[in-house]
Deep mutational scan, measured.
Amino acid sequence: KKVTINGVEIKFNNPEEAVKFALELAKRLNLRIEFHGDQIKIE
């Protein structure tokens, strides 16, 4: 399963991993996060 985070394609074994990764990243950098299907936007 491929997920695009800020235009960067990252391959994950499952979608939950991708979501956890994105949330952790957003929390660490104190950023806002948006989900659009397989696209995750962090700003």
Rank of each mutant, 00 (worst) to 15 (best):
K20A: 10
D38V: 06
E9F: 08
E17N: 06
V8I: 13
G37M: 08
H36W: 13
A26W: 03
I40K: 02
I5V: 08
N13F: 12
Q39G: 10
V3P: 05
E16I: 12
V19T: 05
T4R: 05
N30G: 13
R32P: 03
T4D: 03
N6R: 06
E17L: 12
F35E: 02
N13K: 12
A18W: 14
Q39D: 11
F12C: 15
N13Y: 09
G37I: 06
L29H: 09
F35T: 03
V8Y: 13
G37Y: 08
F35R: 02
I40Q: 00
I5M: 04
G7T: 06
D38H: 05
K2E: 04
E17A: 11
V8R: 09
L25T: 01
I10M: 06
E24I: 08
E43K: 11
F35Q: 04
V3I: 10
N6H: 10
E9T: 13
V3Q: 02
N30H: 10
L23M: 10
T4K: 08
I33M: 03
I33G: 00
A22R: 00
D38N: 11
K20G: 03
A18D: 02
V19M: 14
E9Q: 07
I10C: 15
V19D: 02
L23A: 04
L29R: 01
N14V: 09
A26H: 01
L25G: 00
K20F: 09
F35S: 01
D38P: 04
I42P: 00
I10P: 00
G37N: 09
E34V: 12
N14H: 07
H36K: 08
V3R: 04
F12R: 00
K20L: 08
L31V: 12
E24D: 09
K2M: 13
K20T: 04
E16L: 12
E34F: 11
L29A: 03
I10W: 05
K41I: 14
F21R: 05
A18C: 15
L31N: 00
A26V: 09
E9S: 11
F12I: 03
L23D: 04
L23S: 04
I40R: 01
F21E: 03
R28F: 08
V3G: 04
P15D: 08
L25F: 06
P15V: 13
A22C: 12
K2P: 06
K2W: 12
A26R: 01
K11S: 11
I42K: 00
G37P: 09
V19A: 06
V8A: 04
K20S: 05
D38E: 05
F35N: 01
T4E: 04
E24L: 08
N6Y: 11
E16H: 08
G37W: 12
K20E: 09
L31G: 08
N6A: 10
L23Q: 06
V3L: 07
K1S: 12
E24W: 13
K11V: 13
A18I: 12
T4Y: 13
F12A: 01
N6G: 10
A18F: 14
Q39S: 12
P15N: 09
